[in-house]
Design a protein around this nucleic acid. Structure first.
Lengths: 181, 181
DNA sequence: CATAGCTTTCATTATTTATTGAAACTTGAG
DNA sequence: CTCAAGTTTCAATAAATAATGAAAGCTATG
């Protein structure tokens, strides 16, 4: 099966963006390819479509699974594994978001926590700790906020985002609202 | 000037995280170093503190300036340039966020827009376009939302984030609120 | 307008990251 | 148990990215 020009362009774009989204070129391409392909694909089909080695596909699959972005399908009487996206676009975006938080924020939060437990021993350390404290608080707020957002239903989340400029107005009323039982 | 062990550990951590945050090791270190150092630093001081070449520092400064994360200070009677963070921790986080949106989302949004203008010419393209449409809508919602958030004052934003689980309750009331004049 | 003091550039080199493909491994069917 | 169809691993290699440092470029001052 060979991709149309437009679809090929999309897949290549995903490749170019791959490293910015947190993986590498090949894995970006694989992800894009699986998203725009209706039927689940075998590893060999992926390798052919992208002109990359079978081994590389195997690595990529492992990585995409670690991000929980793809799932395996089986066809009765066929020993091959077929791969497909592990959910809706929305699900996938959430997974990427979550996974990146884990890689980009959590380790720093943990380092900062440890650092702030020990008392500063001189002025340089005192100033540094103030700064680290600010970073810590910021990251913690973001973390808490993002886990609140995850807790909302997709509908609530959509509704919140669609609020747009209404958000300011809503905020003005929050105190009143939160006092009600 | 030499860093204490704790401060050094923080700077090295910033280096390790650098590439996950969107730059590279050295630039991560430079950023961390400038944040925890009270006084603005010269390029040579930075090179010494991190044991890297003067040329590398120059590159890093250029890059950090393109992210608008640092600014230049001058001391009367001194021809050297002194560098310091270009704002509060909060400001810097915002800048990184904005810049990353520009690099990670905007190009894809643009590609998708172009692609969706042309009609699909067969079933594969039709399916692909449905998927791209979903991605497009998701990215557009996120983009609009993030620009709304940027429009809020830091205080409002803090207050929104601190809402935490209250957000669900507030959402339930939004329809009532938005009807009021 | 010459130069000292500083910054930037960029070709070269070093380091890191990704890819290949052959060999090893796994597994279901006969 | 054996084989064939498939998958994974990993040492070797290729490609991409980052760092160095010498040379070129600026610019404030005498």
């Amino acid at each position: 099966m060979t991709l149309s020009d437009k679809n090929f362009a999309f897949v290549m774009h995903c490749g170019e963006m791959g490293s910015r989204w947190g993986f590498n070129r090949t894995i970006g391409q694989m992800c894009g390819l699986l998203i725009i392909t209706k039927e689940p694909m075998t590893a060999n089909e992926i390798a052919d479509a992208l002109s990359i080695s079978r081994g590389n596909v195997s690595m990529g699959i492992k990585e995409l699974q670690s991000w929980r972005l793809i799932k395996v399908h089986h066809i009765p009487g066929d020993r091959k594994e077929y791969y497909a996206p592990a959910g809706t676009i929305w699900d996938m975006a959430n997974r990427v978001f979550e996974e990146r938080k884990k890689r980009e924020i959590d380790p720093t939060l943990s380092l900062l926590r440890d650092n702030l437990l020990e008392p500063a021993t001189n002025d340089d350390e005192k100033f540094a700790q103030q700064q680290m404290h600010e970073i810590h608080d910021l990251l913690e707020t973001v973390t808490k906020w993002s886990s609140e957002l995850q807790r909302l239903s997709p509908e609530q989340l959509q509704s919140l985002m669609k609020l747009g400029s209404g958000i300011g107005k809503v905020l003005d009323f929050k105190d009143k609202i939160l006092k009600k039982p």
